[in-house]
Write a protein that binds this DNA or RNA. Structure first.
Length: 207
DNA sequence: CGACCGATCGTCT
DNA sequence: GACGATCGGTCGA
């Protein structure tokens, strides 16, 4: 049970890191309340060369500045005016790679998650989607820029869970049709047959 | 089931 | 002024 070190995030291969995040535990402590879940679905965004990335072509705006921070920083942005999507920045500073956390299997503070999401029972709709993950864990855009290596609010732990590579599924990313040929990249990774994986269009051919 | 639609607002052109 | 790295509800089959 140890927090992932900076060296985990600052490596060069965003795809490799996206896969390695599967099985890790994302933890938040908001107003003293701990909530946590095991990461079961991620998406890689390969920075300047990836049309689906907010940093495509080296775009650097107020919103995307944190993507240029060192790996291990949180990048949270507002999507569709409603959802706060949580990403983990990777690679060295100035290389704007990021990994979107799309789904979790709830582990700690499930009562609090239900309260935040106005639900009664912890079925698979609680944390199966990037908007729902942030909602359940209390993550908002004001946490953008947070350093997951030292933060007392958000971090990621290795609990010793080992994922067999044959249990990792790959697919195209959700909602990035505008990215042309880059939309075809197999950059979505998930745990096969895990009930907490999100159900969007073009999703894992499992159930 | 699947298709469609409205909500809602910061960001960038 | 248009547009989302989404979600949950509704409607029809």
């Amino acid at each position: 049970m140890s927090r992932l070190p900076e060296s985990f995030y600052t490596r060069d291969d965003v795809v490799k890191i996206s896969k390695e995040l599967l099985g890790k535990r994302l933890v938040t402590k908001i107003n003293g309340t701990v909530t946590a879940g095991m990461i079961v679905e991620t998406e890689a965004y390969a920075g300047e060369t990836d049309r689906a990335s907010h940093a495509y072509g080296g775009r650097r705006t107020n919103r995307t500045t944190v993507m240029y921070k060192k790996g291990g920083s949180a990048y949270v942005y507002l999507c569709y005016g409603i959802h706060d999507l949580f990403n983990i920045v990777s690679n060295e500073a100035e290389i704007p790679h990021a990994i979107l956390i799309r789904a979790l299997a709830p582990v700690l503070g499930i009562e609090k998650m239900l309260e935040r999401c106005h639900k009664k029972k912890p079925d698979h709709t609680l944390t199966s989607g990037p908007g729902k993950v942030s909602r359940a864990l209390g993550i908002t855009t004001k946490h953008s820029g947070e350093d997951l290596v030292t933060s007392q609010l958000i971090w990621v732990e290795d609990t010793g869970v080992k994922i067999n590579p044959r249990n990792i599924g790959e697919a195209t990313r959700v909602g990035v049709a505008y990215a042309k040929e880059d939309a075809l990249r197999p950059y979505r990774f998930f745990l096969k047959d895990n009930p907490w994986v999100s159900r969007g269009k073009g999703l894992p051919p499992s159930s």
